[in-house]
Design a protein around this nucleic acid. Sequence first.
DNA 1: CCTAATATCTACAGTAACTGTAGGTTCAAG
DNA 2: CTTGAACCTACAGTTACTGTAGATATTAGG
Lengths: 151, 151
Amino acid sequence: MNAELFTIGRLSREAACNVQTIRYYEQIGLLPAPLRSSGNQRLYDESWTRRLRFIRHARDLGFELDNVRVLLDLADDPSKSCEAVDEVAGGQLAQVEQRIRDLQALKRELRRMLKLCQGGTVADCRIIETLGNHDLCIADTHARVDASARR
Amino acid sequence: MNAELFTIGRLSREAACNVQTIRYYEQIGLLPAPLRSSGNQRLYDESWTRRLRFIRHARDLGFELDNVRVLLDLADDPSKSCEAVDEVAGGQLAQVEQRIRDLQALKRELRRMLKLCQGGTVADCRIIETLGNHDLCIADTHARVDASARR
DNA sequence: CCTAATATCTACAGTAACTGTAGGTTCAAG
DNA sequence: CTTGAACCTACAGTTACTGTAGATATTAGG
């Protein structure tokens, strides 16, 4: 087995993940601690690149780190049933769909507010007025947006 | 002027904002420091309720605290032009729309991944495979989701 | 061999917008 | 006068990183 070793900078480029994030993942146990050189620098091989790409890709798809952890555990045991993977991914999809719904409600309300604005001064601004009085909103159109969708 | 005073619990109920959040808003200067009772408890009147409701409503619409601050400043000066309000709200709308687009790309990709899964073991799981290899994704369908949309 | 630039190391602080906790007052009711 | 709810301050914790400071390692050029 030809195990070429490289330092963190190259791993960073190859997995498109910045250096401190790699160290952070190691710290929280998402990446195992790698070998160290005589000068104490981390030494990685191909297998780290693969694992880190997996993590980044999952993150890009919106999976939380806890779910990434679950997915990694599953990926590490190929004999396991695929069902659990399906469940995590399905849950993620459901969350994404919910966030989209929430944001669409916000969009509608913001659009409506903006349309009401006729220029002039703040005194007659319907946007400010609407913000000050939720009753002026389309009923319950954005009653409860969960915090994670808000940002 | 009949200024009825009440403590933080009632303000909390009337503006649907929890108590520590109120104290937090005061700390960061979003709410002015109110009167105190002889026993050092915060005393509010109607005007605080209105201001806090305004804040909560804006937050519910996805405005960041910094933008809420801007909106509050504008609301406090009714003689100002409405344009600035429009701009903040318009920016917010644009952000929401971008987030929706990002999330829809994620949704498509997650759906596709889930459809590929045929059951069986992790060894042949296409979800795990796809996560491990971004090239298996629809090209650039979710290349760069900005961090704030990710969660 | 020496030096300068670049890369890496650890440890810790900061981000957004809160939420939770500990340990101590104050207040209203019975 | 006691009990329990509401309130007080101060600080730690949340998520997933990013940024900083100050020290050490490595590499390229002269």
